[in-house]
């Protein structure tokens, strides 16, 4: 009886089985890392808001297969990326190259930030440049009287 209890307790220690099913076999762990990095950053042309790692589309499957084959044939990452960009266009990558067409995409946010910073700086300078508010002589007298009247309260 005690043995069974112990076995039960031991079974709780069992490590979860590696869940990700990888249909491909690699020669080096480094190839697997490169494979996963690539399919994560490549976008599926059919189901446009998924990368080819996530997509179940037939085309995504074909592209994964192609990436795998090219890794096994010792093509560097840049070549694999270029291969697909030359066929599917910049759309295929979630990391579009920096070129005139994508300048707005890459630098737009920084330009917007710069404009906002300049606007803010101008605004602050303008505010500081304003002379301090002038108080009328009659108001000054009134303030004195009020302060004098209440000085005993403190």
């Amino acid at each position: 009886m005690r043995w069974i209890g112990l076995l039960g307790l031991l079974s709780l220690l069992a490590l979860p089985v590696q869940a990700a099913i990888d249909p491909f076999e690699f020669d080096h762990p480094e190839q697997r890392i490169r494979y996963h990095a690539l399919i994560d950053e490549l976008r599926c042309p059919t189901c446009q808001n998924q990368n080819i790692a996530e997509s179940n589309a037939a085309l995504a499957n074909d592209l994964r297969q192609r990436v795998y084959t090219m890794i096994m044939d010792n093509h560097p990452d840049s070549e694999i990326r270029n291969f697909l960009v030359q066929r599917y266009g910049d759309f295929i990558t979630y990391r579009p190259p920096v070129k005139p067409l994508t300048w707005l995409l890459w630098f737009g946010p920084f330009v917007a930030l710069l404009i906002a910073a300049i606007a803010l700086a101008l605004w602050i300078r303008q505010r500081n440049a304003q002379p301090p508010a002038q108080i009328e002589e009659t108001d000054r007298e009134r303030l004195k009287r009020i302060l004098a009247k209440h000085s005993g309260d403190l």
């Binding site: 042309p45 037939a58 085309l59 066929r87």
Partner: peptide, 13 residues
């Protein structure tokens, strides 16, 4: 049959 020419042509559907 394997869609290899398809990939060469950038076919996506």
């Amino acid at each position: 049959p394997e869609g290899q020419l398809g990939i060469e042509l950038g076919v996506y559907g």
